[in-house]
Simulated assay, not measured.
Amino acid sequence: MPMTQPTDASVDEFLAAVSDERRRTDSQAVCALMGEVTGEQPRMWGPSMVGFGHAPYTTADGKSHDWFAIGLAPRKAALTLYGLTFYGSNTDLLDHLGPHTTGKGCLYIKRLDAVDHDVLRALITRSWEAAHH
């Protein structure tokens, strides 16, 4: 399976086209926050992920691929944030974030207005700095 690649598609157009109003505004707000923290421009990765920066990603077969350092995807079930929770990291911040779930390297937020924005900013900042140490 080929890895998702960066594209030249418009991030603004992609986010504006998210059909669920709350998911659309939450996604736009998190994208703006990630841009503010990183100083980077967002870029589409594949048809449905927005990424910031670059970080090598090694797959189970030992191959290294280019990937984004942090990113987001407005999914139907939740706003998915990438690069903030690798290997059980950042539990000190996650404990204070508010309602969320985590997966392998993913943080899922159903409602942005239900989480602590200062904690989210700290998570994004710490993760970005860790990817660019």
Score class of each variant (00 low, 15 high):
E13M: 12
F14Y: 15
F14M: 00
F14E: 00
L15H: 06
A17H: 06
A17M: 07
V18S: 01
S19L: 13
S19I: 09
D20N: 14
R22L: 12
R23M: 08
R23K: 08
R24D: 03
R24H: 01
T25Q: 01
T25K: 06
T25W: 02
T25A: 09
D26S: 09
S27P: 01
S27V: 04
Q28P: 07
Q28D: 04
V30C: 02
C31R: 08
A32D: 12
L33A: 09
M34L: 13
G35S: 13
G35F: 13
E36R: 14
E36I: 12
V37R: 03
T38P: 07
G39T: 08
G39Y: 14
P42A: 09
P42R: 10
R43N: 00
R43V: 06
W45N: 06
W45F: 05
W45S: 00
G46K: 10
S48G: 13
M49D: 03
G51H: 06
G51L: 05
F52Y: 15
F52S: 11
G53Y: 11
G53L: 10
G53F: 12
H54K: 15
A55S: 08
P56S: 02
P56M: 02
P56G: 02
Y57N: 11
T58R: 12
T58M: 02
T59P: 04
T59E: 06
D61W: 04
D61H: 05
K63V: 10
S64M: 11
W67Q: 11
W67F: 11
A69P: 00
I70Q: 11
G71L: 08
G71H: 02
A73T: 11
A73V: 11
P74D: 03
P74S: 06
A77Q: 15
A77L: 01
A78S: 14
A78C: 04
L79H: 04
L79S: 08
L79C: 10
L79G: 09
T80V: 14
L81K: 03
G83K: 01
G83D: 07
L84H: 01
T85Y: 03
T85Q: 03
F86G: 07
Y87E: 11
Y87L: 11
G88D: 02
G88H: 04
T91D: 04
T91Q: 13
T91W: 02
L94D: 02
L94W: 03
D95N: 13
D95L: 07
H96A: 15
P99S: 07
H100E: 01
T102L: 10
G103C: 08
K104Y: 09
C106S: 14
C106A: 13
L107N: 07
L107M: 06
Y108S: 11
Y108T: 05
Y108F: 14
Y108A: 12
K110V: 12
R111F: 06
L112R: 03
L112A: 05
D113H: 10
D113C: 09
D113Y: 01
A114F: 04
V115F: 03
D116A: 15
H117P: 12
D118S: 14
V119N: 03
L120D: 01
R121I: 15
R121K: 15
A122P: 00
L123F: 02
I124P: 12
I124N: 08
T125W: 00
R126Q: 14
R126H: 10
R126E: 13
R126A: 14
S127D: 04
